[in-house]
Design a protein around this nucleic acid. Structure first.
Lengths: 253, 253
DNA sequence: AATGAACGTTGCAGATAATGCAACATGAAA
DNA sequence: TTTCATGTTGCATTATCTGCAACGTTCATT
C-alpha cells in the first residue's frame, strides 16, 4: 500500500538469507543503487540493519530486542509459563506452547527436559505446520473456509513416512482433531519423536494457543506418552480458565 | 533519510511497548490517521505487525522468524557453539557468547548448566552492559573515542552494591580489562552470581565476540570460579583461531 | 607506480507517490 | 434513536522519492 515502505521492508527477508552488499540489494529490489542506499540507511538508523566490517549489510540487533519485547508482551505466554513448568516437573518431558498467526504457527515457549541443546533455535521459529500436534489444534479451530484456504496453500514435506502427505489428508486429520479436542504427532516430524497436545481456549471458546508434551521413543513409547493425555488436558484447561477470567486492561500511554 | 520509511519503522518500537490502536499510533507519530493506517497496512502485509481481535495492532510473527534467521547466520555463533558446549561439559556451568553492535551488547548463544528456566528471555536480549563481564571485554576493545562516547551515554543502574556506579569508574574498569585481556563480574548484576570472561578475536586482533562462564555463589565461590580462567581463555583462543582461519566467502545469489 | 574497474556516495530536476482533508461507514454507548 | 468514537476511502496538492550522471575511494591488475 505504500511503495517506499514496501520496498524497504522487502529488504529484511532478503538479508535474512545472508549478508548482501548494496548492489545485490538494489538488483533484487529492482531499483537504482542510490534508492537502495537510502532505504538501507533508514533501516540502519532504526537498527534493523547492520553494516559489517566488509561493508555488507545484514540484519541488525534491534530486531532481536523487538522480537523479545513482542514475545514478552503476549498475555498467554505469561499466564501459561508457570503451568508449563509444573507440567514439566511432573512428567519430565519437553513442553511446548504455540500460537497461530496468519498462516503460521510458532512456538512461544518451551520447557526442556534434559539437554540444553539449541533451545533458541526453536522458540520463535515457525513450526512444521503440517505435522506438529499443536499446529493441528490451532488450525482445526479456524473457520471452515480459512482452514481450507490455509491447507491448500501449504507445502507438505515428507519429513518421515508418517508425515501428512497432502491437503485432503491434512483436512481430514484436522476434522478428527476438531472433534476429539486433542491431537498427536506420532513420528510425523522426526521418526523417533511423539507428541500429545491440548488446546487452550479463550472466554469465547476459540482456541488461542496450544500446548504439547514431546518425548523420544527411546525414553517412552508412544502408548506410554499417550497416558499423559489427561494430565496435559487438565493443564491446558487450567490455563484456559485463568486466561478467560482475566481482564487484560492495559492502557498504554 | 526516507521520511515514509522512517515513520513506518518508528511504529515498531512503539508497538513493542504494547498493543495500540490506530489513533494512538497516529498521535505518537504526529501524522494523520489515514497516513498511519496506510503505514500499518504495509507493515501488516509484511507480517511485522498483527491485528488482534480487538482491532488493535501489535508486533507480528514474521519478526520472530527474521530474528531467528538473523541469529543463525552469524558466523561466530556457528563456529563457537560446539566449543561452548564442550566447555560446559567440562565445568558444568552456564556459558554465554555475546557480541557488540552499535551501542548494545547482546547474548547470541548460551549453554545452560542445570535449570532450563526462561532461556529465551536471555538470548537476543540486550545485556546489562555496565556490569557484565562480556560487555566489559567488548567495550574495552573499542577505539578510545567511541568507548568514551558510549560510556558517557550509558545509564548506570545499581543492580547491587557492587555494580559499576558511573562513567569514570566504568572507563577505569575498561582500561584494566583492556590491559589484562580478561574480565569478571563479581556480583555486579545479581548479588550471588559471578562470571569470568575472555575475548574472541578476529584475524586483525579486534575483539569480535566475548564468552563467559557464570555460576552462583552457592555452587562455587568466586575464587573457585576464577580458577577456571585459563580454561575459558583457552577455549576463547581456540575459537579465535578457527574464526580467523576461515575465509567467509558466501556468494548469495 | 599507474591504470582501471567496482562499488559506494552525493546533488539535482522531474515526476511519482505519499499526505491531509473531508466525507462516509461502522459500531458502541447514552 | 441520537451521539460519539473509530476506522476507512477518494481525491487534489505538493512534498517526497526516484533515477541519473558525475564524483570519490578502494582495491586489484598491468
Amino acid at each position: 500500500m505504500s511503495q517506499t515502505v514496501d520496498r524497504a521492508l522487502s529488504i529484511l527477508p532478503l538479508l535474512a538469507e545472508g549478508p548482501a552488499d548494496l548492489g545485490q540489494v538494489a538488483d533484487r529490489l529492482g531499483v537504482h543503487k542510490s534508492t537502495a542506499l537510502r532505504l538501507l540507511r533508514t533501516l540502519h538508523e532504526h537498527g534493523l540493519v547492520y553494516r559489517q566490517s566488509d561493508q555488507r549489510y545484514r540484519l541488525g540487533a534491534r530486531l532481536f530486542a523487538l522480537a523479545q519485547e513482542a514475545m514478552e508482551n503476549l498475555d498467554i505466554r505469561e499466564i501459561a509459563h508457570p503451568h508449563l513448568v509444573r507440567l514439566n516437573e511432573q512428567c519430565g518431558h519437553t513442553v511446548h506452547l504455540a500460537v497461530y498467526e496468519e498462516g503460521e504457527v510458532l512456538y512461544i515457549d518451551k520447557v526442556e527436559s534434559r539437554y540444553p541443546v539449541r533451545m533458541y533455535s526453536r522458540i520463535g521459529k515457525p513450526v512444521a505446520i503440517t505435522v506438529a500436534a499443536v499446529a493441528k489444534l490451532l488450525l482445526a479451530d479456524l473457520p471452515e473456509a480459512e482452514r481450507r484456504a490455509v491447507a491448500e496453500k501449504l507445502e507438505y514435506p515428507m519429513y518421515t513416512a508418517r508425515s501428512t502427505p497432502n491437503a485432503p489428508a491434512f483436512l481430514r486429520e484436522l476434522e478428527k482433531v476438531r472433534e476429539q479436542g486433542w491431537a498427536t504427532d506420532l513420528g510425523g516430524h522426526e521418526e523417533s519423536i511423539n507428541c500429545v497436545a491440548a488446546p487452550i481456549r479463550g472466554a469465547d471458546g476459540r482456541v488461542v494457543a496450544a500446548m504439547s508434551v514431546s518425548a523420544p521413543n527411546v525414553v517412552v513409547t508412544a502408548d506410554e506418552l499417550l497416558t499423559l493425555r489427561p494430565l496435559v488436558r487438565r493443564t491446558a484447561d487450567t490455563i484456559s480458565g485463568e486466561y478467560s477470567g482475566r481482564t487484560p486492561i492495559k492502557e498504554a500511554t
